[in-house]
Design a protein around this nucleic acid. Structure first.
Lengths: 312, 312
DNA sequence: CTTGACTTTCACACGACGGCAAAGTTTATC
DNA sequence: GATAAACTTTGCCGTCGTGTGAAAGTCAAG
């Protein structure tokens, strides 16, 4: 019979931990003095403690360990549970690697920028969004806005409840300005009672669902277009983080007035993981992509990837 | 002015989160109605929210984000903080990868073993341990134990307070049994008052510190030696987990009596990460078939340090 | 018997919220 | 203006695996 402190030393755990394990029924002492409450352990219980610690280091929660140890589990069931746990761990590793990439990118940006605080880029998952959409080639923001306001009014008159913000989708690649630009004005609407909008607008307005995407977003004040730094920042960011563009710009107009200073815009640039050689995973997973031999050296965890591969 | 739910939608966070951020002073609404307590946000505050989310995704704690945003931080300070965070993340990735390896190894073991529940192997970090040590070539456990008990008595007579367990270090590679085996009997002692033990024992006993090591350990009941399955299990385990032997076996005798059934032993096998071609990273990149090359399976003798290096 | 080492239970703390409830407020509709 | 629906507030409990005490009782040695 061992007292708790002895058992704790043998098992390399704290007394507090043992008491907790007792409390949750994970590891009960073989005997408890009914008068004093003293816990007495048997050396054999180290075996169980070992199993517990082993499972714990695999990242299982204590409640689950109780089940795994107390209900007799078939090897097949155990296999399933382990597989699940493995998937979670791998998921976690991906998250941490994202994190690593994010921090490294910011560090690099620090060196480059010096003072520039252009670091408001945020990665968001955008939900699918039902919108009333119409296209225009109006060459200036002002005109596009006027167009949008007409749409807004039309929707209200039609009994539809529109969201109060306006989305501009830049459907061609020259930044949304200039002669030939094609822009889709989209206004979020709710899924009910939009009956015959399409007909009533003579086909100008369609109802469609903007797909859910992951987007790099950036919030700024000023003229909704024309700030090349904005796009520059986004471009630098996605390049440094190993993303590629996966869709047209979305400009979410949060505030819009007559003068540029009154405008507040969130630029959303759909992105996806780049697959090519400059992927973060290549450098930080500690693994090699197919076709390379391992064993020549450890995949450099602490050394930075070659700058050239990250250059914009 | 935005109400909390609007602001929450724009920022893709929950109202609960916003209230919490208000509470901890991370993001306070520009205005709070003194009567109703209603929070009102300005659209500009999305910028700050963005920064918060960005830092949060890097894994910073909220308290630290408060500092980073409110105290004006020089780029240099920021760089240091980011570097620290990066190191932590990398550390975390290593831990998760350990976890991954552990689970994968167990899965593989499940397939191999079928029913065998030989999975009590646990990796431990052993602390450095001051011991009174003496060597013997006694060929059987019984004799070694007798030897150990003599030592124990001698230590007590000398006024030293010994630990109650006995450690047997197997200094050569044939499992601790047989004619030529050299075994070191080590008894943990406390660092005080061991004055002249060495002299009094005529040099037979030395005081030395067992080095701190990481060891694969396994607890079992029965004759302290002679269970080849025990060593087999350990060997299989370290092979599957990508470790290599880094020191001599330590047998920690937790219980010892006259008959084998009364013995409880923890076998501790110091290990270290293997660097070579069969590293875990290689192993889990999916290109190693389930079969294993058995050339170096029992790392045995070649990995043990020369006896001389164990002298104090 | 005293001292000191040991044990017990109780309780709070962490981090970043989620969930729920009760109560008060605004907005929309009749 | 009344009423209902939608919205907001505060507040308290729960998470998970302990760390860190405090206060009180217990055991082993001198």
């Amino acid at each position: 019979m061992l007292k708790i402190s002895d058992f704790a030393r043998l098992g390399q755990v704290s007394m507090r931990t043992l008491r907790y394990y007792d409390e949750i029924g994970l590891l009960k002492p073989v005997q408890v003095d009914t008068l004093t409450g003293y816990r007495y352990y048997a050396v054999e219980q180290l075996t169980r403690l070992h199993r517990i610690l082993d499972l714990k280091e695999m990242g299982f929660e204590l409640a689950q360990i109780v089940q795994l140890l107390d209900e007799q589990v078939t090897p097949e069931q155990l296999r399933v549970v382990l597989q699940q746990r493995l998937a979670e761990v791998q998921q976690q590793i991906l998250i941490e690697q994202e994190r690593q990439a994010r921090i490294e990118a910011r560090l690099k940006q620090l060196v480059l920028d010096g003072q520039q605080t252009s670091y408001e880029v945020v990665l968001k998952r955008l939900k699918p969004q039902l919108v009333a959409a119409s296209r225009t080639t109006a060459p200036s923001v002002t005109l596009q806005l006027r167009f949008a306001r007409q749409m807004l009014q039309f929707l209200k008159d039609s009994g539809v409840k529109p969201g109060e913000h306006i989305l501009l989708l830049t459907l061609d690649a020259n930044g949304g300005e200039g002669e030939g630009s094609l822009v889709e004005v989209a206004i979020p609407v709710e899924g009910s009672s939009l009956g015959n909008i399409v007909e009533r607008s003579g086909g100008h307005i369609t109802i469609r669902e903007l797909p859910a995407v992951t987007a790099a977003t950036l919030l700024y004040r000023g003229d909704p277009y024309g700030l090349s730094e904005v796009y520059q920042s986004l471009a630098t960011w996605i390049e440094a983080h190993g993303y590629a563009v996966a869709g047209p710009y979305r400009h979410l107009l949060l505030q819009y007035g007559d003068e540029p200073e009154g405008c507040l815009t969130e630029v959303q640039l759909p992105v996806e993981r780049k697959e090519g050689g400059t992927s973060r995973l290549f450098f930080h997973s500690g693994r090699r992509p197919a076709g390379t031999e391992s064993g020549e050296k450890r995949a450099g965890r602490s050394c930075l990837p070659p700058v050239a591969s990250l250059k914009a």
